[in-house]
Design a protein around this nucleic acid. Structure first.
Lengths: 197, 197
DNA sequence: TGTAGTCTACCTTCTAGTAGGTAGGCAGCG
DNA sequence: CGCTGCCTACCTACTAGAAGGTAGACTACA
């Protein structure tokens, strides 16, 4: 659709930055690291992203955009709240199991938020607010339809669910066991979904 | 009791390092940063901790030791499983609300685990294993006594609880709202504790 | 011809870490 | 007592390398 950029070096840089950030956070990589993995010189990265802040800001902005469009598309294909939660959790379970994206970029950046450049911190906050808002909507609909069993306000259930997902990513990483995430999320989902008993 | 060290500079260094790590992770601070806040020269830090790995390794080891003794003491004073969970959650709620320790050192380090020096990564893993083991024991006793309502195996409930706690820390940080942690944990505890309805 | 993309070569600042030295405390011993 | 020697804690001054970033030239291609 958007015919902005036929050049894919910028995308390669963003992809490399993403995997470095997912591995070690904002201060865990350098332009030299990116340059090496994509076979380019440091200075060429500055051509695409004048500063590191520009680079990561772009990455976070796009990450949120992708989440927004992804959730919208997900809701078109899968309208049932229980199935939405299952699909969302299943997405991350898959990413962790095949090691393709073993952590959420914004969850990782949030952990070092006080030390982040303010522009990036703002982007990370925006992601959390979007995700929380989307989940709150899912819980509201599920509660209204009776397809989700909740005992607190939808907003609070949404925050608790999001927290469990992020914490489960952390545990999976700490244990080095890709199945930990699913082990935690499966019963969490079961408690929320009355039909599957 | 233990008459090991009258010198408190080493402890000052560890305390400064802890607050820097909590703020920005392993790569988010330097010896120069620590030197400045405690009013000492960089080289003097190397006298106490020859390398940065030594410093953080010591910090993580002591963090685990403190957790072990802290949990043991907690169990002596508060033997009931529901109250143990409440006290544990309350401890972090307090730390976050008064900003004294707004994040768990090992939870933060776990997020950047793939980029950590292996000695430190091992220490972080040990902390997760201890905490998970302790919580599993609490859930086992609570389930046996009927004082905790669980629907999955104690080990799994323990992992889910730990994940929610860590994720709630992350959300509190992302929103910059110290009350978020309690907002998430309160209903999570209520679901586990049958008496309080 | 212009411009997007890359390069080499460089700069400045920060990094962890080292070298070598000083000041004071506290042995042990004549 | 006073002297020697060692130890802890700290210092100044330095290093090599990595960090983010810049300047300017080359190339390819529309």
């Amino acid at each position: 659709m958007s015919m902005d950029k036929p050049s894919n070096t910028a995308d390669d840089i963003l992809a490399a930055a993403r995997s470095f950030i997912v591995a070690g956070g904002y201060n865990g990589f350098s332009y030299a690291d990116i340059a090496e993995v994509i076979g380019i010189r440091k200075a060429s990265i500055h051509h695409h992203f004048p500063s590191k802040v520009d680079l990561v800001q772009t990455l976070v902005r796009r990450y949120l955009e992708d989440a927004v469009t992804g959730m919208a598309e997900l809701e078109r294909n899968v309208p049932e709240p229980p199935e939405l939660l299952r699909t969302y959790a299943g997405f991350w379970a898959q990413c962790i199991e095949d090691a393709s994206r073993p952590f959420c970029v914004c969850a990782l950046l949030a952990s070092e938020l006080p030390a982040l450049p303010p522009e990036i911190a703002a982007g990370v906050r925006a992601y959390f607010q979007f995700l929380s808002g989307w989940l709150t909507g899912v819980f509201e609909r599920g509660a209204a339809q009776g397809t989700l069993t909740i005992s607190a306000a939808p907003r609070i259930e949404a925050e608790a669910f999001m927290a469990t997902v992020h914490g489960a990513m952390l545990s999976a990483r700490a244990y080095g066991d890709v199945l930990t995430f699913g082990m935690i999320l499966t019963p969490t989902l079961q408690k929320l979904i009355p039909t599957a008993d």
